[in-house]
Design a protein around this nucleic acid. Sequence first.
DNA 1: GTCTATATTTCGATAGAC
DNA 2: GTCTATCGAAATATAGAC
Lengths: 213, 213
Amino acid sequence: MAQAARAGAQARGGSPDDSWGGVSPDAARRLLVAAVEAFAERGFHATTTRDIAGRAGMSPAALYIHYRTKEELLYHISRVGHDRSVRLLSEAAEAAGPYRERLAGAVRTFVRWHAEHHTTARVVQYELSALGEEHYAEIVGLRRRSEKVMRDLVAAGAEAGEFAVDDPRATALAVLSLCIDVARWYSPGRRTPEEIGAFYADLALRMVGAAPR
Amino acid sequence: MAQAARAGAQARGGSPDDSWGGVSPDAARRLLVAAVEAFAERGFHATTTRDIAGRAGMSPAALYIHYRTKEELLYHISRVGHDRSVRLLSEAAEAAGPYRERLAGAVRTFVRWHAEHHTTARVVQYELSALGEEHYAEIVGLRRRSEKVMRDLVAAGAEAGEFAVDDPRATALAVLSLCIDVARWYSPGRRTPEEIGAFYADLALRMVGAAPR
DNA sequence: GTCTATATTTCGATAGAC
DNA sequence: GTCTATCGAAATATAGAC
């Protein structure tokens, strides 16, 4: 199955935005990648369906064979991105070991994803308001799940005595906020996603008052 | 002078978005406030000139008496907001006293402004890409100034032995990033801008490895 | 300075041939 | 499934009366 092979390549982290290897048919995937790039550059409302189709090497009408509306394209991107976010955070939070390691792992992975896939992440994090009402509500639900994962992790670490925080809820939201904003400012060059992830993991440990390693 | 009186009211912090008290004539100010609200809610490109004019209680054509284009409205908002940001940060950084107090003051003030004026701040921070080329370049210059202020402050604190940071530049950008993202998630209710500012000042001190107070 | 009316452009989405 | 051609709606901005 081509999908499984592509999922493997994706897990290893290939070219800048290969989050969409599993999407088929080919034309639908090309349109999705084109939409991600266009939405990230100019925003959803400033992007025309002609632009998306053009980037994918197709006519404007071809878009509507694979997606019912422009908004559905955004929803697809947003949905996949938020699913990924929840999964990355959850897996790190449920790992074995001390809470400081779990938090560091969660932040490192989450930040690395935001840097590595910064075009996708930019759309996922900053184009929410362009979603239709129902889609928006669904995505907000996923965001609450991410927030809960981080909140529970910080609270657990605090109760275990590994963290020293006055307000676990606010601290968790601040850590998440710091990670998310990476999608806004990151651009390739100065430092690798891996390096930024490691640096941010250290910052997060400082924020929760974990003893320096 | 009405402008001086309004500036006084503004410094004391009145209603949620009175950053525009000094703008005259009255119609121009109403349009500006309407644009801020609309841009913050839906984004620049999703906002129509009809919507802006409507919120200001005027006809669509009236907008063009006071502003040449919709983009000029955004530029005005962005310019004022960035000037304010640079000033808030600079004043705090140049204050007397230990660097940890200066950093705490800068973060507290900057965050408080982002929360108090979160509609304005949202436009200022997240609608940059809708600016015209020249305006964009000018605003980027102001942003670099803000970054330099924070960078120099963290570096000075580190050299003075008050902060323990591995990478002052990256740490400064992360602190700024954390502050800026407040504009994205803040909504009135749970906690006051003042409380969030104080909380974030503490987080920033942790990030730079300042000794706990 | 503000309005009504509208010129002009461009958009999202569809029709129908192939 | 993709194309060319185009519809109908809606956008920014302007013209001209008051």
